[in-house]
Computed example of a mutant assay.
Amino acid sequence: MSKEMITALDILEKEKGIKKEVIVEALEAALVSAFKRNYGQAQNVEVEFNDRKGDIHVYAVKKVVEEVEDDQLEVSLADALMINRAYELDDEIRFEVTPKNFGRIAAQTAKQVIMQRVREAERGVIYEKYGQYEDEIVTGEVSHRDNRYVYVDLGGVEAVMAKSDQIPGEQYEPHDHIKVYITKVENNGKGPQIFASRTDSGLLKRLFEQEVPEVYDGTVEIMSIAREAGDRAKIAVRSNDPDIDAVGTCVGAKGQRVQTIVNELHGENMDIIEWKEDPAEYIANALKPSEVIDVLFNEEDENYCMVIVPDYQLSLAIGRRGQNARLAAKLVNFKIDIKSETDASEYAEEEDSEESTEETAE
């Protein structure tokens, strides 16, 4: 080892931001392992790296005992006193055991340690950079795909998008530029791993923030989102300014604002409804475009309600394959039982009949 090593450590600290002390500590630990591996030594050793001269020294550390049982780990008190009269039992003494050819092994080990630390530092920089993008939208370029993921180049690092995060029907071809929502950034043994999504509700929220200034600045607030990606979504919004219409603001003049989002999501339909503090009003809004006659709540189950709609609007309230009812229930976090006006009347008559029977029996 030489002063070239010191120069290299100084450059790494300046260019990569890796502190010299960190590398020296890792190097000393690695050299202990290298010494034991190459010289078949089981003794307790320490390696000392002089970060001014670049010299390396190996020391065997032995404990002072009355009677030696293992001469690789222990030294007798009598021998210790011959070295220095101040030594006592249980003291530790370091004996230099640096092999003559240890410099070559040390150089190889140092190279491996430095390369590893550089990789770790680069991973740390990537993690720090993209960790701040978690829960945000970024634009990337599709690089390739396999059976598990679509890989999106974010500029020097790839994000992975699992099948569950890909919008059904969307095709992702190399060099396509797409907006993705970063759901999670992990820093594991393989380095930073970035997970992206096109189906997460967070993507929709961020798109509205981009297109609607009032949502971005908090004047209009997105209260809830229910989404079946690629097909349809319901968004509940409210205004924190009585002079601003939350729904109209999100839709935009001639529907321009919401249409930009629909286009970005390749035709995903958007139902923007007004959030209401009153659960009955909120549920009625959530089932639009269907009309709602009444919303009845169950005292025994606070998350259940029966919604009565006009007979001719039952299919509209339920929606194609039950989608409208399903999204509405998810949006308001209620179990919704939709009944037509006729069915609701018959149901009420049956309930009354059962109650009468029970009273008669009593």
Rank of each mutant, 00 (worst) to 15 (best):
D79Q: 13
E214H: 05
Q43P: 06
V220H: 06
R238T: 12
F334N: 00
L287F: 09
E15H: 06
G155M: 03
V185C: 01
L314F: 12
E354Y: 04
A344C: 09
I83L: 15
E134F: 04
T139G: 07
V138P: 00
V47I: 15
K62C: 02
D343V: 05
Y87M: 09
C250V: 10
G252I: 11
D91E: 08
D176S: 07
L287P: 06
K288E: 13
V180I: 15
C305Q: 07
N84T: 04
S224H: 13
R326D: 01
V157Q: 12
V125R: 15
E211S: 07
A159Y: 01
A253P: 05
L81N: 07
F35L: 06
V292N: 03
M115I: 15
E281R: 06
I83H: 08
L154V: 02
A246E: 05
E264V: 10
G103M: 09
L331D: 07
E346L: 12
R232G: 10
V152H: 02
V75E: 08
A159S: 11
E13P: 05
T360S: 12
K335P: 00
G17L: 11
L9F: 09
Y151T: 04
R94W: 01
E66K: 14
N240D: 06
E350Y: 01
Q256N: 13
I194H: 01
V58E: 09
H144V: 00
I23W: 03
E21K: 09
L296D: 03
K62F: 02
A110H: 02
K205H: 13
V180Y: 02
